[in-house]
Nucleic acid binder design. Structure first.
Lengths: 220, 220
DNA sequence: GTCTATATGCCGATAGAC
DNA sequence: GTCTATCGGCATATAGAC
């Protein structure tokens, strides 16, 4: 990672204080997430960042350039979170552990402190076609990451070979992203939601006759 | 249902030919679905309907009134489709049949000839807050219909009582709606997708040891 | 029921001073 | 790097003729 030298900051922190370009991006991500793409004007972003609309053009060429960067960072962040979560697991982790960890990481990316990933999920369908098209490669790469994860689960053994892993992925990702529309940090935690989704994805709603009274009961 | 008398049509059909208000709604639903809420101007709707923007105000009070009606009809139509599909089933239909039929009906509502349901799914998150809020009761009623269906599946027996039916529903509906973003009528049919989703929801990805070589093998 | 003409306002973007 | 001022365009909505 290259670090942009700050002219008058004596602390070369790993997390540079948000000023200038970074402040614009953070503000834009938050407003896009809250109000959508068309509902967020450059005047809104500038006002929330403590400047005037014309000043934004010193940092970016256009509104599309801003939203494109926000979208790109959104995928980058959630992808890094999922990668880091999987890296902490042992190489022989079972399917249940793999899915629960990856799903939890994805949910954390959307409901965490930063707004880039949630903004991406929310406004991707609203941006102009050419902006959306520019983001397709990054999104495809992230989807391929999940496809690889499901394939790894299948290699790990135990998966029903009649199931269509592609369809499973196409169902899973919107199911995760949909939490943005209903999860408000209520009674159930994000971790519990991730666990339930992983459980549902692997075992389904039906009761398994052979697992009537397993040796280690799941505590909840 | 009240039938609006058409002035110069000799056929009082159950499906009145789209003219005037109905034509405006059909056109608006199609454009909203294709271009989103903010991406569809009243000029666009009027031009596609063969009139001028000012003429729209003879049929509706505002753009919000148009989009509100489109959203309402969208829920009404998909709800009627699901209800009709369930009404065709025997009272003792098993969970697999219930879910497959309901999911198929919901998918047909989104990918069928009419654009209201797909427009609803697409633009619901884009409309002004007060328009969205007015649609919440209709959406809630539809969600309750699915909650009742899952409860019926549980009463039918065989469902794991450890599973959270509310979470299952909150995962299922976005998984269905997400097909709008990837299904293009390719190799797999909508019916096959519905079947696979029902199968996944009930059985999960894991292989069931007790069902290794069942009496009737699923043909595919 | 549809039209022309227009009111009114916000949008993204630019010019140029400091 | 931020500002004031403004341009040109498109948005919703209205007035009033036909």
């Amino acid at each position: 990672m290259t670090r942009t030298p700050s002219t008058r900051s004596h602390k070369a922190a790993a997390t540079p204080e948000p000023g200038g370009r970074q402040l614009v991006l953070d503000t834009a991500a938050r407003l896009f997430r809250e109000r959508g793409y068309a509902g967020t004007s450059l005047r809104d972003i500038a006002a929330a960042a403590g400047m005037k609309a014309a000043s934004l053009y010193h940092h970016f060429d256009s509104k599309d350039a801003i939203v494109g960067e926000v979208l790109r960072i959104g995928v980058e962040q959630v992808s890094a979170l999922v990668e880091a979560a999987l890296a902490e697991l042992p190489p022989d982790a079972d399917a249940q552990t793999l899915l629960r960890s990856a799903i939890h990481a994805h949910l954390q990316g959307m409901h965490g402190l930063q707004d880039y990933t949630s903004a991406n999920v929310r406004i991707f369908g609203q941006v102009p076609a050419h902006v959306r098209q520019a983001q397709v490669p990054a999104r495809d790469a992230y989807e391929r990451r999940w496809a690889a994860l499901l394939t790894r689960c299948a290699r790990q053994g135990g998966l029903d070979r009649q199931r269509d892993l592609r369809l499973a992925r196409l169902f899973l990702i919107p199911a995760m992203n949909g939490t943005l529309d209903w999860f408000q940090g209520g009674a159930v935690s994000l971790k519990a939601i991730a666990e339930e989704l992983a459980e549902l994805l692997l075992h389904g709603l039906l009761l398994h006759p052979e697992a009537g009274t397993p040796t280690k009961e799941k505590q909840r």
